[in-house]
Structure formats: C-alpha cells, structure tokens
Computed example of a mutant assay.
Amino acid sequence: MSKREEHVEKYARDLREKVGIEPDLDLLREVTIACGPSIYRRDSETVSTSDTGELDAVRDDFLIGKLGLPDDEHLMGGIQQAIRTYGRDNRSKYRPVLYYLLVKHFGKEGAFR
C-alpha cells in the first residue's frame, strides 16, 4: 500500500469513527490528492479550527480557489458546520477529512469527478 493510500485509510477511519459516516473512498482519495504534499507534514496535515487565519485560508484557498464557490457569508457558516460535524472536541482535524465534509456540505462532488 502506498503512503497516500495509508493516509486515505486513516482519513476514512476518522470519518467512520468520529463522524459516523461511511465515506465515498473515491471522493476521499481525490480530496486527499488535492491537498498535495501537506498530508505528509504533521502540522499541515491538520487544521487548527481555533485559528481564524487558518479558517480564512480554508475559505480562500479551498472553497473559493478549488471549488469555485462565490465569496459570501455562507462559506464560513459551512466551515463551522463541518467543524461541528467533525466534532469540536476532536483535537486533530485532518485537512482532507474537513475538506471532504465541506465538499459534501456544498454539494461540490463534481469538482473531483
């Protein structure tokens, strides 16, 4: 199994155990690929959801830049919903898992197919 596949399996396990959903592995794999090499660095693999600068980057770089969503007040609301879904108590929020939840929330699966 490749390193990337090991990461995809780890993220899928997180979705099953912490979120309670069975992930679409093909979509999760594509979202993981979109994260690039950040998944291989411990501090960039996770998102600090208490850091507003980091949440702004998620909005600007992923939601607007990658998914092509318009910049409006709904984006931060979607990010907050994804954080609640993932669980505020979960200290390590993996970037690909959070991005996967955002893709599902905004119905943008087509951006990866």
Results as ranks from 00 to 15, higher is better:
111 A>F: 00
43 D>K: 11
37 P>V: 13
3 K>H: 13
82 A>D: 06
76 M>W: 03
46 T>L: 11
38 S>H: 07
40 Y>S: 12
44 S>Y: 14
54 E>V: 14
52 T>H: 12
2 S>C: 06
83 I>Q: 00
29 R>G: 04
11 Y>K: 04
60 D>R: 10
40 Y>C: 11
22 E>S: 11
58 V>T: 08
88 R>A: 12
49 T>G: 01
106 F>W: 12
6 E>K: 05
107 G>P: 06
79 I>F: 07
78 G>L: 07
37 P>Y: 14
100 Y>F: 15
85 T>K: 04
29 R>H: 12
109 E>Y: 11
25 L>M: 14
100 Y>A: 06
68 G>P: 13
17 E>S: 08
74 H>D: 10
59 R>P: 03
66 K>G: 03
78 G>V: 05
27 L>F: 10
74 H>V: 14
2 S>N: 14
22 E>V: 13
3 K>F: 12
25 L>K: 13
79 I>N: 04
34 A>Q: 02
19 V>I: 15
88 R>D: 14
8 V>A: 05
13 R>Y: 12
75 L>P: 02
55 L>P: 03
43 D>V: 09
14 D>T: 14
100 Y>G: 07
18 K>M: 10
41 R>V: 15
26 D>R: 10
13 R>A: 15
27 L>E: 04
54 E>H: 07
3 K>P: 01
73 E>Q: 04
30 E>R: 15
11 Y>C: 03
26 D>P: 00
106 F>P: 00
73 E>F: 09
16 R>G: 02
58 V>N: 04
69 L>D: 04
101 L>W: 02
85 T>C: 02
90 N>K: 12
8 V>M: 03
77 G>A: 09
108 K>W: 03
39 I>M: 02
37 P>F: 12
22 E>Y: 09
68 G>S: 07
111 A>N: 12
102 L>G: 09
23 P>S: 05
68 G>C: 02
46 T>M: 08
33 I>D: 12
65 G>A: 10
94 Y>K: 11
73 E>L: 05
45 E>P: 00
40 Y>W: 14
14 D>H: 15
41 R>N: 13
58 V>R: 01
111 A>W: 09
41 R>Y: 15
8 V>P: 08
47 V>T: 12
86 Y>T: 01
22 E>K: 11
105 H>S: 08
65 G>R: 01
67 L>H: 02
64 I>V: 14
42 R>V: 15
110 G>P: 00
111 A>Q: 08
85 T>S: 00
30 E>C: 13
26 D>N: 10
109 E>L: 13
44 S>H: 13
59 R>Q: 11
20 G>Y: 11
31 V>Q: 03
72 D>L: 02
20 G>H: 06
45 E>L: 05
67 L>T: 06
67 L>G: 06
101 L>D: 03
12 A>Y: 05
5 E>Y: 11
18 K>C: 11
107 G>C: 10
80 Q>D: 11
88 R>P: 00
9 E>N: 14
12 A>T: 02
36 G>Y: 05
30 E>P: 03
27 L>W: 03
107 G>Y: 06
113 R>D: 01
70 P>Q: 10
76 M>T: 10
42 R>N: 15
98 L>Q: 01
8 V>G: 04
98 L>F: 08
21 I>N: 05
32 T>A: 10
13 R>W: 08
